[in-house]
């Protein structure tokens, strides 16, 4: 788990959330730009999934391996599932779903950091 990747995920999540909140206030459906930002986020999460798995194999730390990997996979899947749900509701509901997905990614990312640090969650 590299610190900068963790920081980038949180920063992109916050940026995407800000975009979504603006459009939610404007009562608009999710825009293409949101889906692009979510795709960028998901590519970073895929890098994190691979990088995290490699780091887990190499580390000497006491990390709950199964929990760590399941979080890595879940955090990668959430934006994908959220996007599909959002595409089915082309209204502010869809925008809300994307916002929930991004918030979930940020929340899971915080948990991931704790798990990597070996703290009991």
């Amino acid at each position: 788990m590299t610190v900068w990747l963790y920081g980038v995920v949180l920063a992109v999540s916050c940026a995407a959330a800000a975009l979504l909140v603006v459009d939610l206030i404007r009562d608009r459906a999710a825009q293409d730009s949101h889906f692009v930002s979510l795709a960028v986020l998901d590519v970073i999460l895929l890098v994190q999934l691979v990088g995290g798995a490699v780091a887990l194999a190499r580390t000497e730390r006491e990390v709950e391996g199964a929990v760590f990997v399941s979080y890595l996979v879940t955090v990668f899947l959430v934006p994908v599932i959220g996007a599909f749900f959002s595409l089915a509701e082309r209204s502010r509901v869809g925008t809300t779903i994307l916002l929930l997905a991004v918030a979930t990614v940020a929340g899971l990312e915080l948990r991931l950091w704790d798990i990597w640090g070996g703290r009991h969650v």
């Binding site: 709950e64 199964a66 879940t74 959430v78 749900f85 509701e89 509901v93 779903i97 929930l100």
Partner: peptide, 25 residues
């Protein structure tokens, strides 16, 4: 599961996974 119900299904689904995972661990 349509309209706001879809958002609700999404969140309930997430919590189903989260709670099941926590319980399994």
């Amino acid at each position: 599961a349509e309209g706001w119900g879809r958002a609700l299904v999404f969140v309930y689904g997430l919590f189903a996974v989260a709670a099941t995972g926590r319980s399994a661990v």
